[in-house]
Amino acid sequence: MTRLAFVTACMILGACARQDSYQPQVPGGDAQRGRIALRQHECGVCHLIPGIHAARGYVGPPLTTFAMNVYVAGKYPNTPAYLVRWIMDAPALAPETAMPALGVTEAEARDMAAYLYTLE
């Protein structure tokens, strides 16, 4: 009986689970390096980032489901190209934002983006 309930629950959850057909790829980006870069640049002071110890900030939005988000900062389509630009220099895309230009290299930004796209 419990087994039946378990199988049924799995079927229901499986049927209801969201399947994104859009899977962003960041050319040259490495998620593991990105995780380290996010930590080194202390992104967690402002953002909650799963998988990064002490990344518990609430100044910016939590990045918990970043891969599923439709927009970057509610302003631009969540594509690798926009995300990399946003990470490098957010004020260039939206002068009103509190997110600073971080002075990260494009390679680092690509790695960070690759990591953020692992968050579902």
Binding site: R18, Y58, V59, G60, P61, P62, T64, T65, M68, N69, V70, Y71, A73, G74, E96, T97, A98, M99
Partner: peptide, 21 residues
């Protein structure tokens, strides 16, 4: 619909900024 178009508002009182501004 469990949408990811805008940010989740689940723990809103903890946020320091609205829309990062």
């Amino acid at each position: 619909p469990n949408s990811h178009v805008g940010p989740a508002l689940s723990d809103w009182s903890r946020r320091r900024y609205i829309a990062g501004i």
